[in-house]
Design a protein around this nucleic acid. Structure first.
Lengths: 357, 357
DNA sequence: ACCCAGATTGTGACCGGTCACATCAACTCC
DNA sequence: GGAGTTGATGTGACCGGTCACAATCTGGGT
């Protein structure tokens, strides 16, 4: 009744009936006629174990269905083979895809992955999440595209093994910074240039929430602004957006009223979805009257009508890179080189076209 | 350099400079002038601790910034306050939303949440995931809408504390089964009835992957079939779909060729998205010529053009219910009553309309 | 003043690993 | 041929909690 069984009892002549708790290294040790420490050496691949001894121990391990207790290992080592992902969100495309990449890489390395959602950027909330993550003894990956994530970076204690996915840094970060990013500033520049090349006088921008208090620092906005400035185009005031289609819809209703608007860049594809809907309702033809571009190449982008011109960002690769960096950091103890990810790629589809008239 | 610090050092006159490892209950004990066991009693809310003693201990705890080590706690108890979510996927709407609900509820209860993606239903893969989850000493939530998840349920050892989110069971499950579901069979019936009421002779179905080997058991399909049968409508062969818009698009190209098709139900909204695209390309007007309904009410459904009639399922609530059930199960030791979730709700939008001609 | 139940607290073992160090044998080196 | 080295293994403490049980304190009843 008491105690937990882990199942996995397999070989015939194991213990008695209804074997209870899982085998420990001492069980294996006595089964193999060696000391518990020798078992420990075997499971950790220590070189100086006689081959015959090793074989005997391995047989006992297989026989008893032994698995090293991650908990005990973590307690004794002071570190555990795990990652905790601190993220403001798990469902929006970029976050979800990054999480997927992390999980994939972590599983390949036999790391456990935990998630902890930061539902606010208030200090006690963030501190609590950090403390709980630190308590696991594993590494931490912070998705810092958002205020809560950025806050977590600020508040993280210095020694904590942590890697962050961040927006393109304004200037090259100090060598050895555990930061990973996709070059979304360059991506924004590229898609904006594309729209300008189509003949649009300027490009309006519907913003995703910014990481900074002032609201001016988002790198996507920066890339957009840089492209406009470089082309000598006027820089309209960005429209405050959000993360989802509802905000894009609201922005779209507003922009649809302004006949001067002929090209709109959205901070992500969910916004663009809502925007397209608003334009459709307003009778503004896309791309005939207005060109619309998105950002991220979310799964739905290719299937909208009109299909959405956007910039593909490799969030899954970003996640994998985060884990790789963290993994190295946990093994070595020293940070590895900063780690930019596969370049964004402009995906041309139906929602953008030449300026008419 | 070695050792981890957890930060959180706060009060002025704490230890020396650069305090190293985190405080343990024995540190707190000596600071408060009591035994370690008394500290344990305080942090666990044991009743028989004198108020003055408790106060002294609590002061020491605050002073040292003590936090109970989840690892040590788990080792000693043999159980940990954590959930591992076994899911085939983290990004598709239903899965992602359920995960969100679980995380939310778990965080509220101060549980850690781990995720483990089942990327195949091969036995060794599933066994490994189960064993790793069991090794945490926490509970397990299996999302079993899919073959891998169902496989995990089959292979899970009996004693394991586990709750599953499943498709509507064909018959009421035995009392005390730790299963949670949304009534997607009834939902499918309802949306199908809606289409029939609009005058459509029958409704075609684009299926999500089924949980069963035979492919005929999916409850969404069952509800659709039941509604057709009850109305005396012919039951067309379901079209094999998938999870994403690409599969919906493929199905749509096929269905668009058949002029007899006037109403299509999709197994989820992502499929419907692709389907709408295919119909648009084929010049089949929705809802003029063909009505299309989705399933789930994913975030994009309301903003498509035409906006998508669908059935809203409360996946987040499902996730919360899973956690609640598991939480009870871990506390009591005995399973709680089965736990159906908020009823699905039909959401009428533009993509469905009366049969023409 | 004496006995006993219940409240309060302390002691030491234990969970299942790892670490530091001791031991013992075979082997190299001069 | 003895000392030093290296390889292979064992011993016991320790990580930071919890558990079972013992010890002490307290107050009520008589």
């Amino acid at each position: 009744m008491t105690g937990h069984n882990l199942g996995m009892s397999m070989s015939g002549h194991a213990g008695g009936a209804g074997g209870r708790r899982a085998a420990s290294i001492r069980d294996v040790a006595s089964a193999a006629g060696v000391s518990h420490q020798t078992v420990s050496r075997v499971i950790n691949g220590h070189p100086s174990v006689r081959a015959s001894t090793r074989a005997r121990v391995e047989a006992a391990i297989a026989d008893l269905g032994f698995r090293r207790s991650a908990t005990a290992h973590a307690l004794a080592r002071g570190r555990s083979e795990s990652v905790t992902v601190l993220t403001p969100n798990t469902v929006h495309h970029g976050y979800a895809a990054a999480l997927q990449g992390i999980e994939e890489a972590a599983r390949a390395a036999s790391y456990m992955v935990g998630i902890s959602v930061l539902d606010s950027d208030r200090e006690p909330v963030v501190r609590e999440a950090l403390a709980r993550a630190a308590g696991t003894g594993g590494g931490v990956i912070v998705i810092a595209y958002d205020r809560p994530g950025v806050r977590a970076l600020e508040l993280a204690p210095a020694g904590m093994p942590l890697v962050a996915a961040v927006e393109t840094p304004a200037e090259p970060p100090p060598a050895g910074s555990p930061w990973v990013w996709t070059d979304d500033r360059e991506a924004a520049r590229e898609v904006t240039r594309h729209l300008l090349r189509l003949g649009h006088r300027t490009v309006h921008y519907v913003a995703i929430p910014s990481t900074t208090r002032t609201g001016g620092g988002a790198q996507r906005a920066a890339g957009w602004r840089a492209a406009l400035t470089a082309a000598g185009a006027p820089v309209p005031e960005p429209v405050a957006g959000g993360w989802g289609p509802a905000e894009g819809y609201a922005a779209g209703r507003e922009l649809a009223r302004d006949p001067a608007v002929t090209a709109v860049l959205c901070g992500n594809d969910a916004l663009a979805l809502g925007l397209l809907r608003a334009f459709a309702e307003a009778g503004r033809d896309v791309p005939g009257e207005v060109s619309v571009a998105g950002f991220d190449d979310a799964p739905h982008a290719a299937f909208l009508t009109p299909s959405l011109t956007t910039v593909r960002l490799d969030f899954a690769g970003l996640g994998r890179a985060c884990f790789a960096l963290l993994h190295g950091l946990l093994q070595q103890g020293e940070p590895v080189a900063p780690h930019p990810v596969a370049a964004p790629r402009l995906i041309l589809r139906e929602s953008t076209g030449p300026r008419r008239g």
